[in-house]
Design a binder for these strands. Structure first.
Length: 393
RNA sequence: CGGGGCGUAGCGCAGCUGGCUUAGCGCGCUUGGUUUGGGACCAAGAGGUCCCCAGUUCAAAUCUGGGCGCCCCGACCA
């Protein structure tokens, strides 16, 4: 599997990567992230509030997911994957059925059993934990997943920012005492701040209304940016509300059965992607931070009929990839202007141009963010890129 | 759910004020040629149930009714 992926990386050429940019944004796009994601060929709208991720968009989504995964694992959480399909009976047990109103997609299966597409997973994760956790020795535990959620929003809007189907990381903590739960909460809070910082997002944390999720206390993480009210993360202290209703209990040292103290912690993964764009773009397009960019560098031979330039580009391409630098080779037979404009639009942090300076054995490396141009000797391309990437992460 | 707007080629749009019959424009796409450092040029081409259904009429993209879809504003929400 790994080998397969590696082989594919080595042939990352524009013409076989299913990348389609467009000159104009779709007429129905309003917010900047929505426009740019469409123009850059990252996403494709199927119906209102439902999107496909195309290769460029998926790569970013995976980068963000991996950052989240690393930080969750570091905080001691364990990854699982729960089903989107859930029986309504569980929600009746927790007394939440109906509370979400029409936001929840409910339907009958062929046996006339009432099912739903999960808007969140407190019920399911509680059901798992109550089946396996028996003793105080099994606690504390934190379980998380990165999974698709369904909420039939009254009005989906801002593209990926409020959609009806979206990718979310949800984590749930199970502790013996309030104090222990407080520790889990703070650990998650720290992990969240690290995640957003690694995504180059500046966020503010504010006390919030717990809404339908309930619980005693919650805070939300709001991204700074042009698009007002972006809530990209929300953490809750749930207390024993769910565990009492769903009978999630453990046998304590003193031989008394006690309800587990819960917490839940959500991040809108797809929403983070949009939030990053909202906070980082210019009139040419997206400006990805290196940590989540779909590629670190894009190689642009100005003239594809210049065989020497193409050969050199190919050489640099392979050399960089052998050092785990992710490179997209723009091998299209397009004019320089088109390639430059597209490179700027899709926001790759570094553009390596092979053109007129090649006669002096030099290539040009442009930093997307600052537009600074460096003339670099062909042999030093790898060295330059390695240090550039290191500096910016 | 209330208010507003929109639906014509892959994308962006014009045409709709009562009809002009071969439905256009820009971009993109195909082929050939000339170009090659910031969205190149010339030539030839392909591509359309004008959202759907019904009605009015000699005649409907255009008028009428109904439906579907999409976007924006508001209340609501991770």
């Amino acid at each position: 599997m790994k080998k397969f992926i590696t082989e594919r990386e080595k042939t990352m050429e524009w013409t076989n990567s299913f990348i389609f940019t467009s000159r104009e944004p779709p007429a129905d796009a309003e917010t900047i992230s929505q426009k740019l994601m469409h123009q850059a060929g990252m996403i494709d709208k199927l119906v209102s509030g439902v999107y496909s991720y195309l290769p460029l968009g998926l790569r970013v989504l995976q980068k963000v997911s991996n950052i989240i995964r690393e930080e969750m694992n570091n905080a001691g959480a364990v990854e699982i994957l729960m089903p989107a399909l859930q029986p309504s009976s569980l929600w009746k047990e927790s007394k939440r059925f109906g509370k979400m109103g029409k936001d929840m997609i409910v339907f009958k299966d062929r046996h006339n059993r009432e099912m739903l597409l999960g808007p969140t997973h407190e019920e399911v994760v509680s059901d798992i934990v109550r089946k396996y956790v028996r003793s105080w020795k099994n606690l504390p535990v934190m379980l998380y997943q990165i999974q698709t959620k369904y909420r039939d929003e009254i009005r989906p809007r801002f593209g990926i920012i409020r959609s009806r189907e979206f990718l979310m990381k949800d984590c749930y903590s199970f502790d013996r005492t309030e104090q222990e739960s407080e520790q889990s909460y703070l650990k998650m809070r720290q992990a969240y701040l690290r995640i957003f910082s690694r995504c180059s997002l500046s966020v503010t944390v504010q006390a919030a209304d717990s809404g339908v999720i309930g619980g005693k206390f919650s805070e939300e993480f709001v991204a700074a940016g042009d698009c007002a009210e972006l809530e990209i993360g929300h953490i809750f202290k749930l207390g024993t509300d769910y565990s009492e209703k769903l009978h999630v209990v453990y046998m304590d040292k003193d031989g008394i059965e006690k309800p587990v103290v819960m917490g839940c912690y959500g991040i809108g993964v797809s929403r983070i992607v949009a939030a990053i764009i909202e906070g980082s773009y210019d009139d040419r397009g997206i400006i990805w931070p290196v940590s989540v960019a779909p590629f670190h560098a894009i190689i642009v031979p100005v003239n594809m009929s210049d065989s020497r330039a193409v050969e050199t580009a190919d050489k640099i391409h392979k050399e960089l990839e052998s050092s785990n630098i992710e490179v997209l080779f723009d091998n299209r037979e397009e004019s320089a202007g088109v390639k430059f404009a597209d490179a700027d639009l899709i926001g790759i942090p570094y553009r390596i141009t092979l053109g007129r300076k090649l006669v002096d054995g030099k290539i040009e490396i442009m930093e997307r963010k600052t537009k600074k141009i460096y003339d670099v000797e062909v042999e030093k391309a790898k060295e330059f890129m390695l240090s550039a990437i290191k500096e910016s992460t």
